[in-house]
């Protein structure tokens, strides 16, 4: 396999909320084309970690490097960096005052400065991709959870980011809607989109990801290929955690 291009590198990331230390020095790398799933028990710091990566939370310490360069030094203004690192939220967070199409256009027009024509075409391309093209006139509150999340994915993709961060994208969904979102995510993974996904969907992590990071109590407890971590976890805490999931093939 050819030498992989290093896209994102997190080095010794620490995050404290008041006295409470959530992340106690986390390091990992994301190469171009990687699908990295971050798993771990609730409260282990997974969401905080992914939110630190695009500075929605300010890390207390540590370095986040994009293409080998420290983000805080290279990008004088974070907005530019954030357009390269897309984000999908657990609660979708579609802009309630805009239609589906406008949701997917606003970033392109206002942030990237594209003209409306181009922005519309790009938005339509990705809405088509997630199967929401016929809903362009709907407002977010008129959509189901799964539809909202698919639009949110299209909104993030419309900026054509290098990496897509996903913070528990299916955790707020009714069970019957999880599948449609996972299907879209799998498709994106197959197309080679680089993704970092915080998830509780173990079957998805096992089948789709190229690497799995198990986080517990603010540290990386184990990191390896999905085959290894799901069939022969080394760490006792990983074993305990995974034993709670029934992962019959």
């Amino acid at each position: 396999m050819a030498e992989k291009e290093l896209l994102l590198s997190v080095q010794d990331l620490k995050k404290q909320f008041g006295e409470r230390e959530i992340l106690k020095g986390i390091s990992f790398n994301v190469n171009k084309g990687d699908v990295v799933c971050i798993i771990g028990p609730s409260g282990s710091g997974k969401s905080t970690l992914i939110r630190c990566v695009n500075f929605l939370e300010q890390p207390t310490d540590g370095v986040i490097a994009y293409c080998g360069k420290n983000v805080l030094e290279t990008f004088k203004n974070l907005p530019l960096y954030r357009t390269k690192v897309g984000m999908v939220f657990q609660q979708f967070n579609l802009f309630n005052n805009m239609t589906v199409l406008e949701n997917c256009m606003v970033g392109q027009v206002k942030v990237l400065g594209k003209d409306k024509e181009t922005a519309r075409n790009t938005a339509m391309k990705y809405l088509e991709h997630v199967g929401m093209a016929s809903y362009i006139n709907a407002k977010p509150h008129q959509l189901s959870g799964g539809q909202k999340q698919r639009v949110a994915i299209a909104r993030a993709l419309a900026l054509e980011p290098e990496v897509l961060l996903m913070d528990e994208p299916t955790s707020a969904l009714d069970p019957e809607m999880v599948g449609e979102v996972l299907a879209v995510m799998k498709e994106l993974a197959d197309e080679g989109l680089t993704m970092v996904i915080v998830t509780h969907e173990m079957a998805f992590a096992r089948d789709v990801s190229s690497r799995v990071i198990f986080i517990d109590q603010g540290v990386v407890a184990e990191e390896s290929s999905p085959e290894e971590i799901f069939s022969a976890p080394k760490n006792q805490r990983t074993k305990d955690f995974l034993s709670r999931f029934n992962l019959g093939k």
């Binding site: 695009n54 929605l56 203004n77 907005p79 530019l80 954030r82 357009t83 897309g86 984000m87 939220f89 609660q91 979708f92 967070n93 579609l94 802009f95 309630n96 005052n97 606003v106 970033g107 206002k110 942030v111 990237l112 949110a152 909104r155 993030a156 900026l159």
Partner: peptide
């Protein structure tokens, strides 16, 4: 909802754009 602001920030908007458009 704070999520509206976060989503705007996450697609690269600054404070004034976030306010103005979202």
């Amino acid at each position: 909802d704070a999520g509206q602001r976060e989503a705007a920030v996450a697609i690269g908007m600054d404070h004034f754009q976030t306010m103005r458009f979202v």
